[in-house]
Simulated assay, not measured.
Amino acid sequence: MPVTRARATEESPPVQTSALVPYARLPRTYHDRHVLTSTVDAFGTAHWLLTERPPEPGSDIPVFDALVVSVREDGDVESTELNAVRTRWPQLDRLPDGGFVVAAARARRYEDGDQVQVFDALGRETWSFSVGDAVEHLLVDPGGALWVGHFDENPAGIRRWSATGALQWACEDVPGAGWIMDCYALNVSGSVVWACPYTDFPLLEIRPGRPVRVRANTVRGAKAVAVHAGRVAFFGGYGEEQDRIAYGELTDTAVEPAGAAVLTRPDGAPLGRRRVVARAARIHVQEEPFTEWAVLDLSR
């Protein structure tokens, strides 16, 4: 729950803060490796994609072996070697069958069908395909579908793909949502997907077989969203609001503001450079050097 910091001066207002809780840590034995990317999957397991050294800069597509280290909520650790990974700036997630998906955020240098690699549980590539340039979010749902949110260099917005590259759903024109040109925040929660896109920043509720529900929202620039039991939390914003948590209550047509706070490290210190992954009621935050995840859980 938010707490109040003491006043800095008699004139300054109190600042509500909300501290993250430690969640998962990369075992120290792997700290000599380079972290390419990291995520938290649909079942709560944290994953790190590691290499011996960063890919060499250049115009050619790198090809290298990598190691995925997975840490479950109960602390159990496992590792999976991936053969011939082909991306310099990857997105990562795990499939329900124990395999992994690695996708290049930028697709311009890739041949058609070579941007996304699917690996089986033994780390062998079994499939490859393309989902389009400018991948901001890649989240696998519990059924194994890939949800891709694009940033503004790809007007596709939000799409769902099968693990074999079949396009299953696209947001296209959503009545009442304005122009969707940049998926700022994406949350895959079971079979329900929540999104907050630029330019009008509505909260979209996407359910299988139903029209997209659009709720008006006054929070601008959030990079993550969590939803639980009619409540919502938006994390991030522009400028000085980059560490903001804005709370809201869901109605049929809108998000009603319900307070705000500043998100901090577990020790109360300000956050630094970070990655963010939202899953259901949780917003997971990972700071540089990207070896630890912390969490804000809206259900607690």
Results as ranks from 00 to 15, higher is better:
Tyr30Ser: 00
Pro14Ser: 08
Val193His: 03
Ala170Val: 13
Ser38Ala: 15
Asp141Gly: 10
Pro142Gly: 03
Pro57Gln: 05
Asp65Leu: 10
Gly132Asp: 05
Ala104Asn: 09
Trp179Met: 05
Thr45Ile: 02
Glu205Ile: 12
His228Leu: 04
Phe234Val: 08
His228Gly: 00
Thr291Ser: 07
Ala280Glu: 09
Gln91Met: 12
Pro257Asn: 01
Thr199Lys: 05
Val118Cys: 01
Asn83Met: 13
Asn83Leu: 14
Ala104Val: 06
Leu203Lys: 01
Arg124Val: 11
Cys171Leu: 12
Arg244Phe: 06
Ser189Asp: 15
Asn154Thr: 02
Asn217Gln: 00
Glu111Tyr: 05
Lys223Val: 15
Val71Lys: 00
Val277Cys: 09
Gln16Pro: 08
Gln168Leu: 15
Ser128Gly: 06
Val212Ser: 00
Thr253Phe: 11
Glu205Ala: 09
Arg282Phe: 05
Ser59Trp: 15
Pro202Ala: 06
Pro90Asn: 07
Ala224Gly: 12
Phe100Pro: 06
Asp173Cys: 04
Val68Asp: 00
Phe151Pro: 03
Leu49Trp: 04
Val295Trp: 06
Arg213Gln: 12
Tyr110Ala: 13
His284Ser: 08
Arg53Thr: 14
Ser130Thr: 15
Arg25Trp: 01
Thr9Ile: 03
Ser18Asp: 13
Gly237Ala: 13
Phe290Cys: 08
Gly165Leu: 10
Leu204Phe: 07
Leu298Met: 05
Leu82Ala: 08
Glu78Ser: 15
Trp179Ile: 07
Phe151Gln: 07
Ser162Trp: 08
Val212Gly: 00
Ala8Val: 15
Ala195Pro: 04
Ala42Thr: 12
Arg108His: 10
His228Glu: 03
Gly259Val: 02
Tyr247Gln: 03
Pro27Glu: 03
Thr164Lys: 11
Phe100Tyr: 13
Val118Met: 02
Glu10Thr: 10
Asn187Pro: 01
Thr126Gly: 04
Glu11Phe: 10
Glu205Thr: 15
Phe129Cys: 04
Phe64Asn: 09
His284Ala: 05
Asp182Met: 00
Leu186Trp: 10
Ser59Val: 10
Ser191Gly: 10
Thr164Ile: 14
Gly143Thr: 15
Val135Phe: 02
Gly44Phe: 11
Cys171Ile: 13
Leu122Asn: 05
Ala105Lys: 14
Ala226Leu: 09
Ala233Gly: 07
Gly144Gln: 00
Gly99Asn: 03
Asp60Gly: 13
Asp252Trp: 03
His137Gly: 02
Pro14Tyr: 09
Tyr23Gln: 01
Asn83His: 13
Arg108Gly: 09
Arg124Glu: 14
Ala229Thr: 11
Ala226Ser: 08
Glu78Phe: 05
Leu138Ile: 01
Arg159Ile: 00
Arg244His: 11
Arg106Ser: 13
Ser189Tyr: 05
Arg210His: 06
Thr126His: 05
Ala226Gly: 08
Arg300Gln: 13
Val277Met: 08
Thr251Met: 07
Arg25Cys: 05
Ala107Ser: 15
Arg108Glu: 12
Trp89Asn: 14
Val15Asn: 00
Asp60Ile: 07
Ala166Asp: 15
His228Asp: 12
Asp252Phe: 01
Phe119Val: 04
Ala163Tyr: 10
Glu287Leu: 06
Leu20Cys: 02
Asp65His: 08
Glu292Leu: 11
Ala261Pro: 04
Val63Arg: 14
Leu20His: 02
Gly113Met: 12
Val174Phe: 06
Gly157His: 01
Ala163Asn: 15
Leu204Glu: 03
Ser191Cys: 03
